[in-house]
């Protein structure tokens, strides 16, 4: 019975956090660029506007189903990440999943999207998807290396157990093993499709890449799932490194702090080309990761 309340609540929380954070991001960028920027609700307006578009173009059944798969993938990912600790609420189905499962679930949605983009027959979209997969190949190596170190440290693959093992600030992974956080941080930014690793959907270089053919309500779905999946990733990193949260306010504050960090990094660096990004991931974060492995396991 609890699931009936939990599921809509978790989706609502991620969606709300999503548009607020991204609304804030646009404000933040505007202030950095010395302008006023849109209201903090702007992302909600944009999203609802797309849902109220009266025409939506489809390139066939697979094109239509792709965004649905993507949304279902995002929803499933959100529901398999526990939001809070020390409580029976907002756990979703996390008892039936684990960290590795969640990491792979995050790829299911993009697969659906890739199928839809392919079905549209637009070469720009496929070009974007290929770049996205290439970037994924680059970022997953250091990202998973960091996560593996966490799993070795806590000897479990369960997110709830990792969260429960960090009750106080002194036991946060961020404090006990800050090197892992450094390893994971930049790949994490890339997995959010944020600058400077946002060449996949670059509007000028590849004509907005995978989204090139999506308009109307389908684009609305893509925006929604993007906001929700991003927030799911933030919640996951908060759970792994910052000890999770016991209530929604704490969760919101921690996600906000992490969001500020990533937004500040995104705001100041120029965009990298795909191969530059991959090469970067395999040199700097992966090198750091190898150092972390040597320091924590071998010595």
């Amino acid at each position: 019975m609890r699931a009936l309340i939990d599921v809509p609540l978790m989706l609502l929380v991620t969606y709300t956090m999503g548009f607020f954070m991204y609304g804030f991001y646009r404000q933040f960028m505007a202030r950095i660029q010395n302008r006023r920027g849109p209201p903090i609700w702007q992302n909600l307006y944009d999203n609802l506007k797309f849902f109220s578009k009266s025409e939506t173009l489809s390139h066939g059944p697979m094109f239509f189903l792709g965004p649905m798969i993507m949304m279902a993938g995002a929803v499933t990912t959100v529901l398999f990440i526990p939001m809070l600790k020390d409580t029976a609420w907002l756990q979703g189905f996390s008892a039936s999943g684990n960290l590795i499962l969640v990491m792979f679930l995050m790829v299911v949605g993009p697969l659906g999207n890739a199928l839809a983009v392919g079905a549209s027959g637009n070469p720009f979209g496929v070009m974007g998807v290929t770049r996205g997969l290439t970037r994924l190949m680059g970022l997953e190596v250091p990202f998973f290396l960091g996560l593996a170190l966490i799993m070795v440290q806590y000897e479990t693959v369960s997110i709830s157990a990792i969260m429960a093992a960090q009750p106080t600030l002194a036991e946060w992974t961020l404090v006990t093993n800050p090197l892992i956080f450094l390893v994971v941080l930049l790949p994490f930014i890339a997995s959010l499709n944020a600058s400077p690793f946002d060449v996949v959907g670059a509007p000028v270089e590849v004509y907005s890449g995978p989204r090139v053919e999506f308009g109307g309500r389908l684009l609305g779905i893509l925006m929604t799932q993007n906001m929700m999946l991003s927030m799911a990733k933030y919640v996951l990193v908060v759970a792994l490194f910052m000890g999770g949260a016991s209530n929604l306010l704490e969760l919101f504050v921690k996600v906000f702090v992490l969001f500020m960090l990533t937004a500040s990094i995104s705001a100041v660096f120029p965009r990298l080309r795909t191969e530059q990004a991959v090469d970067f991931f395999w040199r700097i974060p992966l090198g750091l990761g190898v150092v972390a492995v040597i320091l924590t396991l071998w010595i």
Binding site: E55, H59, G60, E213
Partner: peptide, 16 residues
């Protein structure tokens, strides 16, 4: 949701 979902007129109806 309200509104119409329509199929593209041809395979060449692409943002190009």
């Amino acid at each position: 949701l309200r509104g119409q979902l329509r199929r593209a007129g041809s395979r060449q109806d692409l943002s190009f």
